[in-house]
């Protein structure tokens, strides 16, 4: 399998990971080669090993970390981590505060999904800037070998993973999700840390 397809699968795995866990994702995790494939595809090492949780405790861990029904539920939605809007004409009192839904990133993501024609298959249960949606769009761009667009997408819509990692660490430093999110963050950073190439993309493609 070519590298970009491996990376695509990696992103699809993560997309599934941030949905309430079911058999499909558990099957992947419990495969004996899981760790090596994960590390190979992401080009980085997983922080320490440790035991894999069973499906039930994985579900409970997911609920306690990410469910808004648990008191300190961590958001998996990009808008939550960014100023609601940079639109100077938005005249709501909290226009520039963080922690709100349907901020600029959501509108941009919605636009991208609509324009690429992906919106028809997009599950209405999810927010357009839910991490899983972003990851699946990223995976799609890899599959289509749209490297420049992929780089823009992950560098702009996944640049909040530091905050997500911190939020998980604060709640449960031994969490399985912490280790995996750290790894994803490392993977994403390999695309966002190259400012030069990013600028080159932008310059070269003004249309």
């Amino acid at each position: 399998m070519p590298d970009h397809m491996k990376q695509r699968d990696l992103l699809l795995f993560y997309a599934e990971l941030y949905k309430p866990p079911g058999d499909a994702v558990y099957e992947v995790i419990s495969h004996p080669d899981f760790r090596s494939e994960l590390e190979q595809a992401s080009g980085a090492a997983l922080n320490d090993g440790g035991e894999l949780p069973c499906l039930t405790s994985l579900k409970e861990e997911f609920r306690s970390l990410f469910s808004r029904s648990s008191q300190n539920g961590i958001s998996l939605i990009e808008s939550f981590y960014k100023p609601w809007t940079t639109d100077q004409t938005a005249a709501l009192p909290f226009a520039q505060s963080k922690g709100m839904m349907m901020g600029d990133p959501a509108w941009h993501m919605r636009y991208l999904l609509e324009e690429t024609g992906l919106n028809s298959s997009y599950d209405p249960m999810f927010y357009p800037d839910h991490v899983s949606v972003i990851l699946e769009l990223a995976a799609f761009l890899l599959e289509e070998q749209e490297t420049d667009k992929f780089t823009l997408l992950v560098s702009q819509h996944l640049n909040w993973l530091d905050d997500l990692v911190e939020a998980i660490r604060k709640q449960n430093k031994d969490s399985f999700y912490l280790k995996l999110t750290e790894l994803l963050n490392k993977f994403v950073n390999t695309f966002t840390n190259h400012d030069q190439s990013f600028d080159r993309i932008k310059e070269g493609s003004v249309c």
Binding site: A15, D33, S132
Partner: peptide, 17 residues
């Protein structure tokens, strides 16, 4: 192997581009 059999993937890239 990493690719899970998704129960409800948002993106089923049929007509999408």
């Amino acid at each position: 192997m990493l690719k899970p059999v998704s129960r409800r993937s948002f993106i089923k890239a049929s007509a999408a581009t």
